[in-house]
Each structure stands twice: as C-alpha cells, then as structure tokens.
Design a protein around this nucleic acid. Structure first.
Lengths: 233, 233
DNA sequence: CGTTCCTTTGAACATAGTCAATAAACGTGG
DNA sequence: CCACGTTTATTGACTATGTTCAAAGGAACG
C-alpha cells in the first residue's frame, strides 16, 4: 500500500467529486462513466477549445486543472473560471461558437460524451450536467462579487478558499494544497496585476494568514481567513 | 392605431425576445406560452426570490426589469445580473437554496412554469431554458471580464452596449433607451462607487460619446463607443 | 410644500497600476 | 552536472485611478 502522492491528493479522481456534487450512487456513477468516451489527454498550456470553436455537447474534466479565459483587443486577459477534476462543461443548446478559450493548466485528461447513448444513461448524464452547471453558475456569481466588491487581500483569500472547498469535494483535505498557477495567472483571474498579487501574498504571509510558495498554499490562520470574507455558504 | 409608448419600446413583450433568442416559430412559442402559468406581478423593489429560498423550477420574466444581487457582511452590494423581459431563470436540478436575491427593478410581470406539462410542451420549454441559460452564461462571462479588466469608462460603455444589444433582441431600436437604474445601482453593478459613476458619465458626455440623464441613455457616437471596447461578438 | 431620495461637487486619501531593474527558479542542451 | 536562456518572482519609486467624506443642490412624490 502506497501513500498518496502530492498529485493524487491534489488531482484526485474526478468521479469522487462528481459524486459529491451530484449525490449519485455507485450505479448512477457507473452509468455516467459509460456515457463518456475514452479519455483524451492534453499537456499543460494546450488549448482544449479555442475561441470561435463550438464546444462539444459535453466535456468532463477527469484529471488536472484547466481554465477558461478571454483576451481584450489590447491584450488584457481575464481568466473567467478555473476548472477542477470533476467539472463538466456543456455546450449550449444554441450551439453558439465560444468567445473564450478553454486551456489546460496542467496536463489533463478529459472525456467527451459519446453521441449515441442508451436513454437511461443519457438521463443520468443530463442530470449530472445540470448539477455541475448549477454549481458553476454559483461560482461565476461569486467570481463577479469578488471582482466587483472585494479588495485585493479579500480576493486572494476568497479565491483560495473557494479552490480549497472545491478540492475538498474531491477528497483533498488538510491545510495545504497545490495551486498550479503563476502569480501572473492569479492576477488574470483576480483582476489585478502580478506585481500587486505578489505584494498581497507577502502581506498575507506577514499577517500570518497563509503562505504561498511556488504554488504551494498553506492556510496558517483558517478562521482568520474565513472571518476576512464573512459568512458564506 | 396608436404609437408605441416609451414603456412599450423599452419593455416590449418578452415573447419577441424569447423567439429571437431561441429561434422558435409561432407554434413553438405558443407551446411555451402554454407551459407558463398565469403571470404574477410585483412592484418595483419587491423581492421575487429572497436569499435562502429555493428558486422555482422555472421563472420567466415577461415585463419589466429585475436583478440578482448579493451583499457582503459589511453591506457592500454587488448586482450580479440584470434580467430583461424574455430572460428565464431556472432552478438548479440540485435545488440548492439561493445565495442571492432576485428583486424587481421596475414593476414586473413574471410567470412560473406549471408543474404538470404535456411532454411535447415541456420539451420546448426545456429547450428555451437551455438557450436562455446559454446566453446568460455568456453575459456572466462578459460581466467578469468587465469587472476584472476594464476601466470605469469602459465598464460603463460596455455595460450599456450590452443592455442595448439585449433590448434589441426584443425589438427596441434606436440610439436611445431607458435604463431604470439609479447611479448607485449602476455602481453596484459595475463594481464602482456612485460618485465615480457620476463623474464617469459626465466625462463620457463631455467627450460626446453618450448621454445619461435620469435613466435615459442616448448614444451620441456609436462607433466611438464600440471602438472603445474592441471587437466583440 | 416638505421630505426623501438622487445627483453633483470638492478636497483629501488609498488602493492598485506602471515601469524598470534585479534576483531566483526552471528547463534544456552540452 | 553545469552553463545558459527563459520564465517567474521580487523590489522600489512614481503615477493613476477610483474611494471616502461631507456638503449642497435638484427631482420626485406623497
């Protein structure tokens, strides 16, 4: 019996998270698994869906992290959403071409729904998509509130706590986690500059709230962090 | 034959917008209409869904404007999304209690899906919800980019252009529109203060891009506005 | 017609951005 | 394993954008 590697703890099998999100039992989970085609792989920094593409009807991230982002005419970038193992992205029924990119942050495995499904399996799948979409909508709302109404310190803490909570649904516990983003990417996610992210992280460390060192995040004062951003559910 | 009143031009029947969004024909539109219960009405500032409530499975805004918003522990508010006639809000399959409020901005008419539907009608309805949700997701992404990466001037212009585009899907044309928000609400939508919104609007007027006077928006330099925020689709 | 809400203004302040240079870590090929 | 080039992190000085506080003027509305 081997211990969990860092990678296992931080990129656990997506199924666990999917089940936690949707409350499916093993049978239902198996039905969902049947719907998904053989996993595809991409390495870090590769585009999975480019701006202008039409998203496949369903794309489930199985391993690794990915992100959706777009870029303004003058090069400013915004990371819209981070995708963790277990997250599902579904095409709109309208089949609109996407206006943003979906890119692998680490090396990833993902799976695309097979076109022909047994009806029962498809139902489970549709439900899983619905549940996942509902959670993601909530995270988008939270991202909006973060960008619109929080200071740099609050944004960083709130964002890291959200990542932690989402990883915990996949069974990643403890006060430490690996967040494979550069400070510049964090800046693009949080609407700040990388310089300011750097200073904010240092300030959080000096106030002994958390540490961030080369992608390794350690929460030092858990309740202090949570107090900082108020009650959430 | 009477002319269109201001209210007609700015709060046109939701059906037109729904059809424009979804591409449904008259028959399909009628099927959707059958799914919707007798409209309910609320006056401005009334909560339609409060924080903590579970959203009904489907809620279609027929007339008037509404908005989704949440508030931080210390009272800072963020308006997450503006809802226009024809927008549909659907409960998540997970039936999570909402973490934000849905409030009438003007007096509104809305309709909630009746629980028992003929299957065919329900299918049309489900499709309409899917299409509407897809558009709304796109607008959420745009809101994130706006808050994360745009200056105050750009936020105001981009937001007003978005509102205009969305109203145009409902048949509201021309360089003028009524936007029934106070400057303080615009501030809460755009992540700014009302003082700064005020100064930004004045500056936009001085540079002859647009006018904003008591909720009446006039685009003076259309291409100037669009150039300001770069190409979008 | 008075009250309330909304808008406008000014001055001082704070937070975050810019620019530029240095240092540290990383990856790659020799 | 080391040398090199590249990316990422860190620092400082300066600037800019947006906030705060407070007060006054206007509209709307009973």
């Amino acid at each position: 019996m081997r211990g969990l590697s860092k990678s296992d703890r931080n990129h656990p099998p997506a199924s666990q998270r999917l089940v936690a999100l949707s409350g499916f039992d093993a049978d239902q989970q198996a039905a969902i698994a049947r719907c998904l085609a053989r996993p595809q792989r991409s390495s870090a920094r590769q585009n999975i869906v480019a701006c202008g593409d039409v998203l496949p009807p369903l794309l489930a991230l199985l391993e690794g992290w990915a992100y959706r982002w777009c870029v303004l005419a003058d090069g400013r970038r915004q990371i819209i959403q981070i995708l963790l193992p277990g997250d599902i992205v579904g095409a709109s029924p309208a089949r609109l071409p996407e206006v943003h990119n979906l890119t692998a942050l680490t090396s990833v495995a993902y799976s695309v729904a097979s076109p022909s499904l047994p009806q029962a399996d498809g139902d489970h799948l549709a439900q899983a998509v619905g549940v996942s979409r509902a959670w993601q909508e909530r995270f988008l709302h939270r991202q909006i509130t973060r960008l619109g109404r929080m200071s740099a310190h609050e944004r960083v803490v709130d964002w890291l706590l959200e990542i932690r909570d989402r990883l915990q649904l996949a069974g990643c516990d403890g006060d430490e986690m690996l967040v494979p983003l550069t400070q510049e990417m964090m800046a693009d996610a949080l609407g700040l500059t990388s310089v300011h992210i750097n200073r904010t992280l240092q300030s959080l460390r000096r106030s002994r709230l958390l540490e961030f060192e080369r992608g390794r995040v350690t929460f030092l004062d858990h309740s202090g962090c949570e107090m900082m951003i108020g009650e959430r559910n």
